[in-house]
Nucleic acid binder design. Sequence first.
DNA 1: GTCTATATCTAGATAGAC
DNA 2: GTCTATCTAGATATAGAC
Lengths: 200, 200
Amino acid sequence: MSYLNNPELSEVKLKVLNSALHLFVEKGYFNTSIPDLVKHSGVSTGSIYHGFKDKQNIAEALMQQLLWQIEGEQNALLLDPTQNAWQQYQALCRWLIQTAQDHPHVSQFVLRAQHKEFMPDLAPICSSKPFIKLREVLENGMQQGLVREMDPMIAAASAYGGVLRLIQLSLDQMLPKPALEYLDEISETCWRSVAADIQK
Amino acid sequence: MSYLNNPELSEVKLKVLNSALHLFVEKGYFNTSIPDLVKHSGVSTGSIYHGFKDKQNIAEALMQQLLWQIEGEQNALLLDPTQNAWQQYQALCRWLIQTAQDHPHVSQFVLRAQHKEFMPDLAPICSSKPFIKLREVLENGMQQGLVREMDPMIAAASAYGGVLRLIQLSLDQMLPKPALEYLDEISETCWRSVAADIQK
DNA sequence: GTCTATATCTAGATAGAC
DNA sequence: GTCTATCTAGATATAGAC
């Protein structure tokens, strides 16, 4: 079952984007030719270029779609106003790891470091809405007294850096167990780094 | 002053590798053509192909050189047997950040996630010696009672994930201050995540 | 060993029938 | 809108003089 599911997208566009996601991650953007996309998607060259301006535009449309869906999922996750920052942080970690496990290509494409090489105009991923939301949860935590006062960038790097690193290891098949089995240990461990000292 | 300094390498090889490091990071491997390398290095096509089998071989030789130098620096850093795990960890963090600040291209090339796209035979970077050493310092810390008992992979992801994430932010020009100014705060913060509870 | 000139190939993109 | 056939540019890699 594929990840992309925007009903506004035509059948061919969806086919092409799904194939692009698969091939760009498996072989890399530059090692994927238009003929490769034709073969994998079953859509002809002409139709591809009817739907997309050029190859770069396919990658951009793919990224836009993924970020749009991710943002929606993330917002749904944070709807409950009774959750405190620690609970929200845990929910985010679970969702990050779950997505990496269920849709590794999605995580790999979005989290990859080298977007600029083939999408020079794209804003850095860490300034995208989903990443900003991650930081906001920690800033809420500071206001709630659950996270100690510190530079928000440092807090975010420390609290999510470990989780993202674990996800990268999992995507690179460097972990013996499925990523989700590490969820509790990694989220509690990383949270310790920013948690306020508990007064007894 | 360039980073590469192996006296065993010929003048032309050094020129080519230095240009490759610059261009592969600035434009990306696939956006760098042999003519680009010729222009930037001042070495002719023929001489490049005399020294290297093909373009991929240039990247492999570059990676090998960088890892070799990095390993040497890292070993020098950990020579002092009187340092405990926390001191070693701090020294490693300083060195990681200092290298990213002084030689951003080196860090960017070595830490980039997508090596496999142009060096399919290369072992994943996290199984290279310098990365293994990072984990060992934490395992020593567990034996010394400074790091709490936990899965070594989790410990490493958490302790270094935040630091590496900060370095990535710095390389992406997302930080207002030079990376070194964050050294103390980030290393202390990340260490907290794995530090053993202090008995009072 | 170093250079210039060039062969070869395949990619991205287009034209135009249907 | 979709397809096949094709153009063209530019890349990698080589040949062969010096």
